[in-house]
Structure formats: structure tokens, C-alpha cells
Write a protein that binds this DNA or RNA. Structure first.
Lengths: 261, 261
DNA sequence: AACTACAGTTCCAGAAAATGGAACTTCTTG
DNA sequence: CAAGAAGTTCCATTTTCTGGAACTGTAGTT
């Protein structure tokens, strides 16, 4: 097994709650002998993939990774365009905007634009969460046919909160709403009191798909503003869809019947 | 030589003008045998460090790298980066450099690098001083909208010296200058005969904001050197702003009209 | 100061992976 | 369809990687 596999595993250890790692972290997280962990971290640092934190025994990602990862956005130009839209919409309404992508049954945040409001939504870029249990995830899942969604959940759902769909049928019902209305919504799911509105868009040429999301404390936002957010986000996504020729895109229509999706 | 070295070299091939690489790119850029280049790219993709672009023979950085690199900015705090810049600039010009943060209407020094010159500026790390009455403070206040500044001073100003702004309107006029020129300046304010130049920079993701400041006895520094300090400080801050994606940052332009702000 | 517990490093031989040259397969383009 | 370029696979040799154990270093405790 190549050392590259191990190196990638090390990178996977970083998360929003773990910004640096130690030899012991690797031993517990990856179950590798500590002799390996010790040498691997040193080798990765010597190669320039990691940096030592101060003069401690801690290691963090290096500037090189930051730069290389940065170009991911440009290569996947869809992300760049989506990022520009959520940045603009987030700026206009003062709330937090995200761009996320789906990997299998999981969702990964790619970019964030924190809002200006005091009640700012905390963010988890890079963490993987279940696609079924968030508006961004469902917005992206809605682009799959029902059979494709079922295939992603061979063992059914394990809902992390009681407002998330509990069964695959439950999930499919929500996806049907999203397909007809063009936007996905969540409330009280990942974070208590937080409402999110998401719209998905893709590029049929590259196969890439992203979700645009605006998150805000439910209590502070009236129905009219919420409708406005859906309109803004939808308009931005529509521009992207027109540009890429995305046929799966559904122009969001404003909420007439108030059904949480 | 470890394959990690080669992998890191591959990552170094990415740039703003090269968002993906091919086997031949590696052969020409790194001078490696193309058998190696072919296997290396595939191994890196299999490990999850790179992704294939569509179904072409092109490779780009992966989502994993994007995530890992993203945590770099959390691990390397804004203060550390700012400190590195003022240390470097202070070393180059021999004057004292500070990093400060704002807490409400007050400024707190966080790190200092005393200068080499005989007339050394004495420092006050940890002391809280009024933000309106120093270049660092005004550099940071200038990042707020006028309404936000007014909200910080509901009872108006109590100027500690006669060169500091006397009223809120006076302060806002100075902030306007800072926003357009990208740097703040003070003279004779906290300490008689001392001039300070400050530049502020922030990280929109973490919400942190810091001011970089160089302080020196006014009498010993000619106009040309002063311009040079602004340039150096501005260049260092610009690097940080580029890294964090700070949209509020204004690249300092050299003083044409000599107006103290 | 000695003891203990824990974190990290170094050593070793066997096992596994990387290397570079050449032959081979696609893919482009005239 | 032929020629050239780009990419892949094969091979024996060389080098690196692995995992267990012994070793070093660093607190915290008595």
C-alpha cells in the first residue's frame, strides 16, 4: 500500500474541530503503529505537505495545500460561479451563504460567506454530513431519480434529528416537493432554530453539481424576507443554469403553500 | 527519495495559470520520466489527492486538498500572520512594530517587536486605549460602516489629546480618508513626537480583524522613508488579505497629498 | 531526586513499493 | 491511413516502507 494512501488518510483527519494532529491522534484515529505515525508526519512535513505548529509536536496543513486546494475552485468553475452568487445574496440579506457539493450520500461545504448579523450561523466547512438531513443535501439529491436515491441508502436512513426525514419514502416525498418547487428548505435540523434555503445547479458538460444555500436564525426572518431570499437565490442559480445549459434546474417559485420541505 | 516529495512537486505545478496538469506537463516541468509521471498521477488520484477532470487525461487538485488547505487559515491565526509581517517590516526599517485588535471602542496591543533605533518607541501591550485616538484604532474602525462607528460612541468622544479627533463627525472624516487611501496615520497623539502608520486586515471566515502598525519618532524619518514603510506594511497586509479573501482590505496607495489622518 | 506514565523517536530485517528504460497502446492530425 | 505525439504497461533493480521493540524525552507525583 502506497504511502500516498496513508498521507491522504492523514489529511482526512483534519476537520472543523481538529485543526492540527499529533502522533497519538493518528494512532487512535487511523490505528497505525506509532512508529509509522511519527515517521509519516515528519515525512509529510519534510515534503511540504504539513507544517509544524510552532515548535510543538503538532502538525497542520501547509500553505502548499492551501494553495493547491484553492485552485480546485477554479478548475471546478461551477463552484466559483455559485460562490459569487451566494456571496452577493448573502451580502444583500446579511445572512450566511454556503456552497456545497455531494459525495455519495454525504455533503461537504466548499465555501462560506459569514453573514453580518449578530446571530451568525456557525459553519462547518469540510465536515461531511448526511445529505438527507440538510436542505443543501436534499436539493442535490432531488437531481437524482428516485431509484438513484434509494441506491444511496441501501440500509435506510438514520435521521440525526427528528425534523429530518426518517425513512427513504419520507425523503423521496420531500424530494418530490423540491423538484416541483425548485428549492429546498430545512428548519431546526442540523442546528436548532436555524432555517436554510438551498437551490442546486449543475453543469451537464463536466457533470459537476453544487448547492447554493442561505442560512439564518428562523426567529429573525419574516415570511416576506424569506420569499425574497428564495427569489434572489433562484435568480442567481437560474443565471448559472442558463450558462451551463442545465436541464435539471427548476426555477424556484415563491412559496404559496407554506410547507416545509 | 520518497514519493511524497514527488507528490508535493506535483502540487507545486498548480498555479493561477495552470489549474490542471497532464503527464507531459510533469515531464517538462519536473523532468521526470513519463512512466513515473503517469503512475504518479494515477496513484495520487487513487489516493484521493487529485481528481480526473471529466473523463480526460487531465488532473486537478481534489476536494480533499481543498478541505485540508481550508483548515490552514484556522490553524494559522490572523494574529500570527500579522505578527510575522510587522516583525519583518520592523526589522527592515528598524522601527517598532505592533499588532493590535479592537474590542468595542478600545484597542489592545497583542504583540510588539521593538525597533533597533536609539529613540525607541515605548510600548503598551495589553493596555486598552481609545480606538478613535490612534492610527491602529482608526484603521480598524474604518472597516465598520459609519453607522457602526456612531453606535460605538453613543456619548461622543472624549479626545485624550488635541491632535486626536474631537467629535464623531471629525472621526468619520478621518475614517473616510483611511478607506480611500488604505492606511491610517497618527502623529503626536498618544506620545508626543511619535508618528504611527497602521493598516488593518481581516479574515471574513473567522471574523477576526487586526491592525498592523509601525511606530517611530517623527523627527528622525524623512518623507521618502515614510512612504517606504507604507509600501512595505501594505504589501505584507495585502498578502494576508489575499490569503483570507478579505474584501474590505484596501491596498494602501502612497501618500500624494500630505494629510495626516 | 527518584518514580511513574505517557508521548514521541530510532533501530532493525523482511516485505513492499518506486524507479527508469523500452516496448506497447491510444489518441490526433494532416 | 500513416506519422507523430501522448499515455500506459512491463521488467529487474534499487530504494523505501513497515511494524515490533527498545530507546529517549517530558511532565506530574511523592
Amino acid at each position: 500500500m502506497s504511502i500516498l494512501l496513508s498521507a491522504a488518510d492523514v489529511l482526512r483527519c483534519f476537520s472543523s474541530t481538529r485543526h492540527d494532529v499529533t502522533v497519538t491522534d493518528l494512532v487512535t484515529l487511523l490505528g497505525m503503529p506509532k512508529s509509522n505515525a511519527s515517521r509519516l508526519l515528519r515525512a509529510m512535513r519534510d515534503a511540504g505537505l504539513l507544517e509544524s505548529v510552532g515548535d510543538s509536536k503538532r502538525y497542520r496543513p501547509s500553505l502548499l495545500l492551501h494553495q493547491a486546494g484553492y485552485f480546485y475552485r477554479f478548475s471546478v468553475s461551477l463552484i466559483d460561479r455559485a460562490d459569487a452568487v451566494v456571496a452577493r445574496v448573502g451580502e444583500q440579506c446579511g445572512h450566511t451563504g454556503y456552497v456545497s457539493v455531494r459525495r455519495g450520500a454525504e455533503i461537504v461545504g466548499v465555501t462560506v460567506h459569514p453573514g453580518r448579523h449578530a446571530l451568525r450561523v456557525v459553519t462547518t466547512i469540510g465536515d461531511r454530513i448526511d445529505a438527507s438531513a440538510s436542505s443543501t443535501g436534499r436539493a442535490l439529491l432531488a437531481r437524482l431519480p428516485d431509484a438513484g436515491v434509494r441506491a444511496l441508502y441501501p440500509d435506510g436512513l438514520t435521521p440525526p434529528s427528528d425534523t429530518a426525514p426518517a425513512t427513504v419514502d419520507d425523503l423521496l416525498a420531500r424530494l418530490a416537493f423540491i423538484r416541483s418547487h425548485g428549492y429546498a428548505e430545512s428548519n431546526d435540523e442540523a442546528v436548532r432554530g436555524v432555517r436554510s434555503i438551498s437551490v442546486a445547479v449543475g453543469d451537464p458538460v463536466t457533470g459537476a453539481e453544487v448547492a447554493l444555500c442561505i442560512s439564518f436564525p428562523d426567529a429573525t426572518v419574516a415570511a416576506a424576507e424569506r420569499t425574497g431570499i428564495i427569489r434572489l437565490l433562484g435568480a442567481g442559480a437560474a443565471e448559472i443554469a442558463a450558462l451551463t445549459g442545465d436541464r435539471l434546474f427548476v426555477p424556484p417559485n415563491p412559496p404559496i403553500a407554506e410547507i416545509a420541505s
